[in-house]
Simulated scan of single mutants.
Amino acid sequence: MGPEGSISHVTTRVMGTYGYAAPENVSTGHLTTKSDVYSYGVVLLELLTGRRATDKSRPKNQQNIIDWAKPYLTSSRRLRCVMDQRLAGQYSVKADKDTALLALQCVSPNPKDRPKMPAVVDVE
């Protein structure tokens, strides 16, 4: 099912789902494990907040989950403001804060600042 003859397996087409694709993936089209870590961070934010990665029905400054949530992720007090209300406070505050800090590291604009995937899945 692979390429045949002179057809290459290399593509310049940008792959990935809008809102989940890492900035370097969008600009270069190259996928790396650090791109996967970025996407994982977006999913963590979705789980914490109960919001989608992108939501055009929200006000302009709240349409991108990363831009909206980032200022709240480093403070336990501020983090409560973005937590999914459907959780009704039924979660560990420590686990919540740890998850938020991990998500923040994962969605760093600089791939070198993101943790490696083994470190991400090994977090206790």
Results as ranks from 00 to 15, higher is better:
2 G>Q: 12
2 G>F: 14
3 P>G: 08
3 P>H: 11
4 E>W: 05
5 G>L: 00
6 S>F: 05
6 S>R: 06
10 V>Y: 14
11 T>P: 05
11 T>L: 04
12 T>A: 13
12 T>C: 11
13 R>Y: 12
14 V>R: 02
15 M>G: 14
16 G>E: 03
17 T>M: 12
17 T>C: 06
17 T>N: 01
18 Y>F: 15
18 Y>S: 13
20 Y>V: 09
20 Y>W: 13
22 A>S: 15
22 A>L: 05
23 P>E: 08
23 P>S: 05
24 E>R: 15
24 E>M: 15
24 E>D: 15
25 N>T: 12
25 N>Y: 08
26 V>E: 01
26 V>T: 04
27 S>G: 00
28 T>Y: 13
30 H>E: 12
30 H>N: 11
30 H>Q: 12
30 H>C: 11
31 L>K: 14
31 L>D: 09
31 L>F: 15
32 T>C: 07
34 K>I: 04
36 D>E: 11
36 D>G: 10
36 D>Y: 05
36 D>K: 03
36 D>T: 06
37 V>E: 09
38 Y>K: 13
38 Y>L: 13
39 S>G: 05
39 S>H: 08
40 Y>V: 12
40 Y>D: 09
42 V>K: 02
43 V>S: 00
43 V>E: 03
46 E>W: 06
46 E>C: 07
48 L>Q: 00
48 L>T: 00
49 T>W: 04
49 T>Q: 00
51 R>Y: 04
52 R>A: 02
53 A>W: 09
54 T>G: 06
54 T>Y: 04
55 D>Q: 07
58 R>S: 04
59 P>E: 03
59 P>C: 07
60 K>P: 03
61 N>V: 15
61 N>Y: 15
61 N>I: 15
62 Q>D: 02
62 Q>K: 07
63 Q>K: 00
63 Q>S: 02
65 I>N: 08
65 I>D: 07
65 I>G: 06
65 I>K: 03
67 D>K: 09
68 W>V: 05
69 A>N: 03
70 K>V: 14
71 P>N: 06
72 Y>M: 05
73 L>C: 10
73 L>N: 07
74 T>R: 15
74 T>V: 07
75 S>M: 13
76 S>E: 06
77 R>V: 14
78 R>S: 14
79 L>Y: 07
79 L>F: 03
80 R>W: 00
82 V>G: 04
83 M>L: 07
83 M>Q: 10
83 M>G: 02
84 D>T: 10
84 D>N: 04
85 Q>D: 04
85 Q>L: 11
85 Q>R: 08
90 Q>S: 12
92 S>D: 03
93 V>G: 04
94 K>Y: 03
94 K>W: 00
94 K>F: 00
94 K>I: 11
99 T>I: 02
100 A>S: 01
102 L>T: 05
102 L>M: 00
103 A>H: 05
104 L>S: 11
104 L>M: 09
104 L>W: 06
104 L>I: 00
105 Q>V: 00
105 Q>R: 15
106 C>D: 00
106 C>H: 08
107 V>F: 06
108 S>N: 11
108 S>I: 02
109 P>F: 11
109 P>I: 06
110 N>T: 12
110 N>R: 11
113 D>H: 11
113 D>T: 01
114 R>P: 08
115 P>V: 05
116 K>A: 11
117 M>N: 12
118 P>S: 14
118 P>C: 14
119 A>R: 14
119 A>M: 14
121 V>Y: 02
